[in-house]
C-alpha cells in the first residue's frame, strides 16, 4: 500500500458526545500506521473547518438540528464513502430519547419555566441552529454507505474497519466485534 496516494478522511461529530472520536484516538500507536495510508481532512482532530473532496467521511452522532443537516449534506456531497460511526449515528442514540417529547415544551422547560429563571426567553440568535422536532439517525437524512455501531465502537474495531475500507475489502462484522453498547 505504500507509495500510493493517501486517502483523504474527514470526520465530524453531530449530535454525539465525541466519544467515538475519543475511541478513534484510542487506537493508540496504530494511528501512525493508519496515517501512512490516510490523511485527515476536516476533523475535530485537525481543526480544519471546511470539508474538501474526500474519500471517506466518518459521521459521529445523529441529526438533531438544522446545522447537523447542513453539515451532513456537505459531507455527503464531498465524501465518496460515508460511514455512520457509533450508536447515535446509527439509530439516534441517547439524544433520540427525547423523541417522545415535544421539542417546544423542552425549550419552554429549559428557558422559560425553570425555577430561578426570571424573565427568561428562548434564544433566537440566528447563529444558533434550530432543533428538529425529532433526532434522526444519519441514514434517515442522507444515503449512508457503511455503518459501524457501538457506544463507542472500540479503537481496534475502527482501525480494522478503516483498514478494510482502505484495502477495498467489505467490512464483516459479527459477534463479538459487532455490539450496540
Amino acid at each position: 500500500m505504500s507509495g500510493e496516494a493517501k486517502l483523504k478522511v474527514a470526520t465530524v461529530s453531530l449530535a454525539g458526545c465525541f466519544g467515538c472520536h475519543m475511541s478513534l484516538l484510542d487506537m493508540d500507536e496504530r494511528i501512525i500506521e493508519l496515517l501512512e495510508h490516510v490523511e485527515f481532512e476536516r476533523s475535530p482532530l485537525t481543526d480544519i473547518k471546511r470539508v474538501g473532496r474526500c474519500d471517506i467521511g466518518l459521521i459521529e452522532g445523529g441529526v438533531c438540528n438544522a446545522e447537523n443537516v447542513q453539515v451532513l449534506r456537505e459531507f455527503r456531497r464531498c465524501c465518496h464513502t460515508l460511514v455512520a460511526l457509533g450508536a447515535c449515528a446509527v439509530n439516534g442514540g441517547l439524544p433520540a430519547q427525547r423523541n417522545h417529547l415535544d421539542v417546544g415544551q423542552c425549550l419552554q422547560a429549559v428557558y422559560l419555566s425553570r425555577q430561578g429563571l426570571a424573565g427568561g426567553r428562548v434564544p433566537d440568535d440566528p447563529e444558533l441552529p434550530l432543533p428538529l422536532d425529532k433526532v434522526h439517525p444519519v441514514h434517515e437524512v442522507v444515503r449512508i454507505d457503511y455503518f459501524l455501531p457501538g457506544c463507542p465502537p472500540s479503537g481496534e474495531l475502527i482501525f480494522t474497519f478503516l483498514s478494510d475500507l482502505i484495502r477495498g475489502r467489505s467490512p464483516r462484522l459479527g459477534h463479538p466485534a459487532l455490539r450496540y453498547d
Binding site: 438544522a66 415535544d102 421539542v103 417546544g104 425549550l107 419552554q108 428562548v122 434564544p123 433566537d124 440566528p126 441552529p129 434550530l130 432543533p131 428538529l132 422536532d133 425529532k134
Partner: peptide, 16 residues
C-alpha cells in the same frame, strides 16, 4: 421538522 422551534423562537430567517 423545524416548525416547532421556529414557533418557540419566533425566528424566520434563512438559517431557520
Amino acid at each position: 421538522a423545524l416548525e416547532r422551534a421556529r414557533q418557540m423562537t419566533g425566528r424566520d430567517d434563512a438559517e431557520a
